[in-house]
């Protein structure tokens, strides 16, 4: 049990955040210094009973006051630009990122890899590779917090949020829930295991999923009878055309009944399964029943993986 004051860094972003807070901390200390130092000096020098020059007291000085309002503000604005740029860059994962589904529920973290490997409260990732976490919650709001990477993102029910990172160090790092979620909030944590690519491949083989996420989704698609409307093999051919075909849908723009157009991303597919009347595709009757009470988020993620596997549309 040693006293340490700085958390481990495990990514380039973490290093940048530490540089930001370190240098901004210096600025902040410089801004605070006059208050502490001058107050102390004045308390001593102008203490009652002590002889001091108290003549020509100023009741104010507009230029001075404007200066001490404006100069710190402008200095801080420099850091604002730095910090905001860093934040916005952190919003868009690189294209080659490895996507892992995260489903939070009271009080555990579930992870689904594209290969079909599933784990609870433990996340294995390869070092150096950008990892994109697509996250949603089964119940209340949680927040996936990886202190060693200096990132955190709330995980909401009914909505996908994402965070991404590229770990630079192998090792085991803490993974915590940062948004209060009920009784066992404080023990809703686990480990992030960053491995060398070889070790990660080994883990993948050993965690051995016989079927990929998309294959699981395909089974589910058949079991739920989705083909009845969307067509067998999701081609939309052999069924009466009651519902849009799903092949090549992913990433495509979809015209809606109300005239607007959305891109068929994860969120659109998710909502179309759970609350189908929210966005009805143009040219179709709103016939699909909502699956919100039938499916859990893991299954929805599998169905999405299946639909993704049917091919992506042209312009993403």
């Amino acid at each position: 049990m040693s006293l340490h004051f700085w958390p481990t860094q495990a990514s380039l972003h973490a290093e940048h955040v530490d540089w930001l807070i370190g240098s901004f901390g210096i600025l902040v200390a410089l801004l605070a210094a006059p208050v502490f130092i001058l107050s102390a000096v004045y308390l001593v020098r102008y203490r009652h009973g002590r002889k001091a020059d108290r003549s020509q007291r100023e009741a104010g000085n507009v230029w001075l006051e404007t200066a001490w309002a404006a100069i710190p503000f402008l200095l801080v604005m420099g850091f604002y630009v730095w910090s905001t740029k860093m934040f916005l860059d952190q919003q868009s994962p690189p294209d080659d990122a490895l996507t892992i589904d995260v489903i939070a529920k009271q009080w555990m973290w579930k992870f689904q890899h594209a290969g079909g490997q599933r784990e609870i409260n433990e996340l294995h990732v390869p070092v150096g590779r950008p990892i994109r976490l697509t996250m949603t919650s089964q119940d209340v709001i949680h927040s996936l917090y990886l202190p060693a990477l200096r990132i955190k993102q709330d995980v909401l029910p009914g909505r996908y949020t994402q965070e991404w990172f590229a770990a630079t160090d192998t090792g085991t790092f803490p993974l915590r829930c940062a948004e209060f979620c009920g009784t066992d909030h404080s023990v809703m944590g686990g480990r992030l295991v960053v491995q060398t690519p070889a070790d990660f491949a080994g883990w993948q083989a050993q965690a051995g999923a016989d079927r990929s996420l998309a294959q699981l989704g395909h089974t589910l698609f058949d079991r739920l009878g989705c083909a009845g409307c969307h067509g067998g093999n999701a081609q939309g051919q052999d069924a009466q055309v009651r519902a849009p075909p799903l092949a090549g849908l992913y990433g495509k723009p979809v015209p809606l009944a109300d005239g607007s157009i959305v891109r068929a991303g994860d969120q659109y597919i998710h909502d179309s399964i759970m609350l189908p009347n929210k966005q009805v595709a143009a040219g179709y009757e709103p016939l699909m029943p909502p699956f919100g009470s039938v499916l859990d988020e893991e299954q929805v993620a599998q169905l999405e993986a299946y639909i993704r596997s049917l091919g992506a549309g042209g312009d993403r």
Binding site: V17, L20, K152
Partner: peptide
């Protein structure tokens, strides 16, 4: 003021 900085806040909020 530190918390108002987006990249710092992401790490230390909550």
């Amino acid at each position: 003021l530190m918390l108002a900085m987006l990249s710092i806040d992401v790490h230390v909020t909550d």
